[in-house]
Simulated scan of single mutants.
Amino acid sequence: MAWCFRNIRRHMCMLMRQNFAKSCESKLNDQINMELKACHQYLAMAYHFDRSDISSPGLHRFFLQSSAEEREHAEKIMKYMNKRGGLIVLSSVPEPLPCFASSLDALKHALKMELEVNQHLLDLHALAGEESDPNLCDFIEANFLQEQVDGQKILADYVCQLEKAHSDVGDYLFDKYMGAGMHTGK
């Protein structure tokens, strides 16, 4: 009986589905899972820098905020999928890297993740164009592309600043800068 009701509800979703290619739906599911993977990794990074033997409250706060933003992105895409009549398919999230040798290594890893997420968004946008889905193109442009570029610039600046620091004192001062809220955030 429960199967019957689920089938009817799924059929109702399909009734409102218009100009939403299965390839776009699949790529959006990949994007959701990529955002959740980044959320998970940033959360692990945040609490790595919160450890008493690391004690970098600025980076802890930055990565915690980054984790929340990635989760918001995933939720935004899931809401969009429901509006378009798509089916959300969540996969298991891989185990994050547990720790980093330095703040610089963590920020380089974050920048690499953001570049991968951005490339996937660009590929999704191109696919939406190929599938003649202007609504999906607009959704990606309005909600993600500029924010990704801005976030990449911030991370690249942080990497550059830490590369110039070259010392534990430089790391300490950078973290104080982060903790003081002097950055614009990701």
Rank of each mutant, 00 (worst) to 15 (best):
R17K: 14
S52W: 00
R17L: 09
Y47I: 05
E25K: 11
M45C: 09
N33K: 15
A38N: 03
K37C: 14
M34L: 15
K37M: 14
M12Y: 08
R17I: 03
D30Y: 02
N19T: 02
H48I: 09
H11M: 13
P57M: 10
N33G: 13
S23P: 00
L15C: 04
M34F: 12
H48S: 09
L59G: 03
E25P: 01
L28V: 05
F49V: 00
D50F: 13
D30T: 10
S52A: 14
R51Q: 13
H11P: 00
L59R: 05
C24N: 05
H60K: 07
Q31T: 13
F63T: 00
Q41E: 14
C39L: 00
A44Y: 05
L64S: 13
L15N: 03
D53L: 01
M45Y: 07
A38Y: 02
L28G: 08
H40A: 01
L43N: 07
C39P: 00
R61M: 11
A46Y: 02
I54Y: 01
F63E: 01
F49M: 06
M45N: 06
A21D: 10
C24G: 04
E25A: 10
A46E: 02
A38W: 02
I32P: 13
D53F: 03
Q18D: 11
K22G: 07
C39Q: 08
S26C: 10
R17W: 06
Q41N: 12
G58K: 08
H11W: 14
L59N: 01
Y47R: 06
S55A: 15
M12E: 05
C13M: 02
D30C: 06
L36M: 10
Y42T: 09
H60P: 00
L64V: 03
P57V: 00
A44P: 04
S55H: 15
Q18T: 05
A38K: 08
F20C: 09
D30H: 01
S26K: 15
H11N: 12
A21E: 06
C13F: 01
A46G: 12
